[in-house]
């Protein structure tokens, strides 16, 4: 459980961090909270020649809440996310989800940017960001570009981010209506057996709009347009929920692991989504 040797860099600003990445190419990796990368290094499943610690890059911090959109710096910790009242008012599902990530000690160090950028299907934030239609700002040698969360994830640990880019900022539209983040896990600190993020708006007793995303049920987060479509225009009763679950099940691709076999995960995914829809609807 000891990583192989690496060089440690702690740049003070984004330009320096990008410079180090450019200089060392694929030998360099940025580290935010480190909860994913450090265990991988200790297991020697990841070998990093140059570790670029972003702790001292002030540009990556801060939460801004505007009328229609919030922006969150990549180095904002889960704990900061949870304790920010303005954020909790504007995008309440963030706090609800973050409280279900690991434990307080981890949340004091773990960052939102690291959670979304690592491309680990077990992380909670990627699915949530897809549900929220968030946008990620990536900054590379050629300057910044913005990528929708829904287009960011390509596969296991494979994302739209190039090796010489840093994910700096997340923009999230303020949502209306009801929300729910529902997660089943084996114990505190575990990844989800299944988790569902749901946003709903209501109009005339019917679902006016919906967004549904699932976590740890495929090698990427699953934003299920079909599941959302099954709800829109309906009363969110048992039949509509069953249709949404059926649509969601067609979109996920869970694998068997110690949490259980595929049939179990699909069943739990359905139950969890049903509960998330019910809670979101009750708040809509």
């Amino acid at each position: 459980m000891i990583p192989s040797a690496f060089e440690y860099h702690r740049p003070g600003d984004l330009a320096s961090a990008l410079g180090i990445l450019s200089a060392y190419g694929d030998e360099a990796r940025v580290i935010a909270g480190g909860h994913s990368l450090i265990p991988m290094m200790k297991l020697r499943m990841a070998s990093v020649g140059h570790l670029v610690d972003l702790q001292s890059v002030a540009e990556l911090r801060g939460i801004t809440v505007a009328e229609r959109e919030v922006t969150i710096g990549a180095m904002v910790t889960q704990a900061e996310l949870i304790s920010h009242d303005g954020l909790a008012k504007a995008v309440p599902i963030l706090r609800e989800a973050a409280l279900q990530i690991a434990d307080p000690q981890v949340r004091y160090v773990g960052t939102v940017g690291g959670n979304v950028a690592n491309g680990d299907p077990g992380n909670d934030m990627p699915g949530l960001m897809q549900c929220l239609d968030a946008r990620f700002t990536l900054v590379g040698p050629g300057g910044p570009r913005e990528v929708p969360a829904r287009a960011f994830y390509h596969g296991l640990y494979a994302t739209e981010r190039a090796e010489d880019e840093i994910l700096t900022r997340i923009a999230i539209p303020v949502h209306a209506g009801g929300h729910a983040y529902e997660k089943q896990k084996r114990k505190i600190g575990d990844y989800a057996t299944a988790a569902a993020a749901v946003l709903l708006t209501k109009s005339g007793g019917k679902v006016a709009s919906a967004s549904v995303a699932m976590t740890n049920l495929s090698d990427v987060p699953v934003w299920s347009e079909a599941a959302a479509a099954a709800l829109v225009g309906r009363d969110c009763g048992a039949e509509a929920v069953a249709d949404a679950v059926a649509a969601m099940l067609a979109d996920i691709d869970p694998q068997a692991d110690n949490r259980g076999p595929i049939a179990f995960k699909k069943h739990v995914a359905g139950v969890i989504l049903g509960r998330a829809i019910a809670r979101a609807w009750s708040r809509a």
Binding site: Q184, R186, T193, R259, G260, P261, A263, F264, H267, V268
Partner: peptide, 16 residues
């Protein structure tokens, strides 16, 4: 008796 094994008991007994 972790989650999936309890779930399997219920499934095998036809409770789903």
């Amino acid at each position: 008796h972790d989650h999936w094994r309890i779930w399997k008991i219920a499934r095998d007994l036809g409770l789903h």
